[in-house]
Design a protein around this nucleic acid. Structure first.
Lengths: 228, 228
DNA sequence: CAGGCGAATTAGGGAACCCTAAATATGATA
DNA sequence: TATCATATTTAGGGTTCCCTAATTCGCCTG
């Protein structure tokens, strides 16, 4: 006789949920196995396995139909937002309290987010003064799971010159992040798009006077909102 | 063909090493499977399995002989001390920076110690001002693995009345820890043993005037050094 | 509407850790 | 020194999550 242990490894499951959440966007679009596999760095077959397991568990965090992709159930979305909250609070904490370089906070938070307790979360939240944004400019979901919708658009979508404020920057690409920071491209910075070409943008950042030529290929990593 | 992944789950292995270190004391006495099993909360057979695996790995962290117990190799001891360092730095950090109640720091540190990076360790160490002791009064091993020897003795070993200073308190038993704190029994506190009976000690703690009757059964949890 | 093609799933394993039950060593004792 | 209790190890499984290979499905197109 074995003691039954309906004990999913939370770390792995959480990563699946977070990936489904991220890929599905705020509207909760169905996500394909392949996309998940790629995001998670596992084989598609592994994804199928996991989704079947998750789907057949009580109070399943996902809605899954063979060959038709997955999306999060209400419970799954709640959990995903908890993890995102952990992640972003940790990023803010590492950056502001522990003085991490911006390009290192993501990976460390990615690892720790699965293991911190509610108490830890509460304490760093308090220590930071209940922040609303992480250092990349992303909203930190509230305790109740609410998170305002992103209203910015990527620099790559900018169709005519003008003045903007940097809303957020991508967190995945560490070297790029370092580069952006070096040029002052950080949430809150003023950014003027002076001209555009198929290859690059000519930008003026903050109060710098000289123009910055910014490759279009990287422009998806910077999100802007109109200057007030 | 499968990509080979000589990838021991560090968390579990680390826990074994830490347990061997703790049970073997500073001299590195051989530790029995049963003792390990008990400490780790697993079956003795599981311990045997793990020890065999560890012993047969390259640069093995342990020296293991069937039926004769294990002890750490130099590499194993180094690793164990790293974990202990992580653990104690985390405890200090949770207590001092995040204002955790003393009785909660152990469990949280126990979980996190396996996942923090060298950078994290370095940063909290700096933030705390390179502390030498954790909140329980235990030495924090140095980066190079050095750790001064414990010179205190448990209250339970005290054979005659006198004045002492609390050196350290046990970290495992959360409720007890809370109790000790409530009575002012914390590292650095002055403590006078006024009388002893088979059942309990009569203590005077700090500058309190009234005596505290302290059960002998709990006296192993408090370590003392002579008052200067 | 029959192929085809790529996406997704099934089949069959592997590695890490854990468990119980059944041997088997060890060491103390009669 | 034979015996026994106890400590330890071996045997045989189980779970979780991952992988490759083979198969099947959904869908687009000729």
């Amino acid at each position: 006789m074995t003691t039954r242990r309906a004990n999913p490894n939370t770390e792995s499951v959480d990563n699946y949920l977070k990936a489904i959440f991220t890929l599905g966007g705020p509207e909760g679009v169905r996500v394909t196995s392949t996309a998940l596999a790629e995001r998670l760095g596992v084989a598609p077959a592994s994804v199928t396995n996991m989704l079947q397991k998750l789907a057949s568990s009580p109070r399943s965090p996902v809605e899954y139909e063979r060959h038709r992709g997955v999306r999060l159930s209400a419970a799954g979305k709640r959990r995903a937002l908890e993890i995102v909250r952990h992640h972003r609070l940790l990023e803010a904490f590492l950056y502001e309290v522990l003085d991490y370089p911006i390009e290192e906070i993501h990976d460390e938070a990615e690892r720790l987010e699965h293991f911190i307790s509610e108490r830890f979360e509460e304490r760093i939240d308090a220590k930071l003064g209940r922040p609303k944004f992480d250092p990349h400019g992303h909203h930190i979901p509230a305790l109740n799971g609410r998170m305002p919708k992103q209203i910015s658009k990527p620099l790559s979508d900018v169709k005519k010159d003008g003045e903007f404020v940097v809303d957020s920057v991508s967190d995945h690409d560490a070297p790029l992040l370092k580069l952006l920071e070096a040029h002052g491209i950080a949430p809150g910075a003023r950014l003027e798009v002076r001209s555009r070409s198929p290859e690059e943008f000519a930008l003026r950042v903050g109060s710098h006077s000289k123009a910055l030529l910014f490759p279009r290929a990287l422009a998806g990593a910077v999100r802007l909102r109109p200057a007030d």
